[in-house]
Amino acid sequence: MEVPARGVAGVGDSAGGAAGAGGSRGGVPGESGFGSGAPGVRGSEAGGAGVSVTGVGVPVGEKPARGKKIAAAAVNQASVWNIANFLTMLRLFLVPGFVALMLADGGYDPAWRSLAWAAFAVAMITDLFDGHLARTYNLVTDFGKIADPIADKAIMGAALVCLSALGDLPWWVTAVILGRELGITLLRFLVIRYGVIPASRGGKLKTLTQGVAVGMYVLALTGWLATLRFWVMAAAVVLTVATGLDYVRQAIVLRRRGIAERRAALEETKA
């Protein structure tokens, strides 16, 4: 008599979640450590031979029927209406509010700028928590994979464009930062067929430095604080360029390795 492998599916799914911990929603990994993570290995891939992926009534050593796989996937799919997605949506809704506060009364009123900074700070804080919650409580959804990186780029891009439009930040700084962010995101998708470029510590430090620098520019600072923010932004620009070049190097290496492995596999098949 074969014994059903009850409860084993939980082990497989936990392994999948750990594999996807490089980012927030199981998509292409981001650099903040909380945003846009690498695809996690699902229970059907991590379980291995002799392990049930449905966890209900499938004997050890037997593969579940296709219909049961689909049912299991449906059960494991988190609801779109969860706290992680709520924080992501909050960040998206904060973008127009932030822009309105930044540009209120000509864009130079310290009170309005302080409120804009508060909105920016809330957006940055939610970025730290939504991905962590999604991974920890298995709240990863397709919506979150798409919306999370969009929200990240939207709030940072809005802040940079507003600062440059008001004359507080040179346009070339905004162009360098946004060009790098969009370029690296596109690069990740171009080489994803060969593998995933992992988030580096340099990328996480870059994200943190950018957030601090932009936040300081949003506030109407004067005196030595205004001088300090200039150097913080300079450090952010240097890290932006340096980490961008490093990701390009990693992408080239990953692509070459992937092509070499495919050729080797093709030659082995022919042999």
Rank of each mutant, 00 (worst) to 15 (best):
L187D: 03
A5M: 04
V218Y: 11
V75H: 11
P39H: 11
L219Q: 11
A236W: 01
V241Q: 04
A78G: 03
I70T: 15
D246N: 12
S36C: 12
R201C: 01
D127S: 02
F129K: 01
W224Y: 12
T126P: 08
R188V: 06
D246W: 10
G48N: 01
I177Y: 00
Y194V: 04
G179F: 09
D127M: 00
T222R: 13
Y247C: 08
N76V: 09
G16S: 04
W171T: 01
Y217Q: 05
V95W: 01
L219C: 11
V232F: 13
A154V: 07
E268G: 03
P29Y: 00
T227Y: 13
H132M: 06
S14H: 15
G20S: 07
G30T: 12
V232D: 03
G20A: 05
Q250T: 02
L221H: 09
A46Q: 03
D13L: 09
G131E: 01
A104G: 05
I197L: 15
L163P: 00
M1F: 13
I259G: 03
S36K: 11
L219A: 12
V241G: 05
L187F: 08
V140D: 06
A19T: 15
G22A: 12
G50K: 03
A118V: 15
V161F: 13
L133Y: 01
L182H: 00
L101Y: 05
A65D: 14
G167E: 03
G48L: 12
T207M: 15
A49F: 12
A175K: 04
K63E: 14
T222M: 03
A116I: 01
V253R: 15
A260H: 06
G258K: 10
V241W: 05
L219D: 03
R249T: 02
R91P: 00
A73M: 11
S24V: 00
G167Y: 10
F189V: 10
V218C: 06
W172Q: 10
K68D: 14
A119W: 05
M1I: 13
G7M: 08
I259N: 04
V191T: 10
E181C: 09
G33S: 07
L169E: 00
P64I: 08
A104N: 05
S44Y: 07
T136Q: 14
A15D: 06
A159D: 08
A265S: 08
R256G: 02
D168F: 15
A21D: 11
A78L: 01
W231S: 13
A19D: 08
Y108W: 11
D142R: 14
A65Q: 13
E268M: 12
R25V: 02
S200W: 05
G27Q: 07
T126L: 03
L92Y: 02
V161T: 12
A119I: 07
A84V: 04
G16M: 05
N85L: 07
C162R: 02
L219T: 06
P198D: 09
G202Q: 09
A73K: 14
G195M: 06
L92S: 04
R180K: 15
A147E: 06
F189N: 15
R113C: 02
S52F: 00
V60C: 06
M89K: 02
G7H: 09
E2V: 13
S32W: 04
K68A: 13
D109N: 15
V3P: 05
S164H: 05
I125H: 00
G10V: 11
S164F: 09
L239S: 06
A260P: 03
F34D: 07
M102F: 01
V173R: 02
A175M: 07
V80Y: 11
A236N: 00
A46H: 08
G107K: 09
E45R: 14
G50T: 10
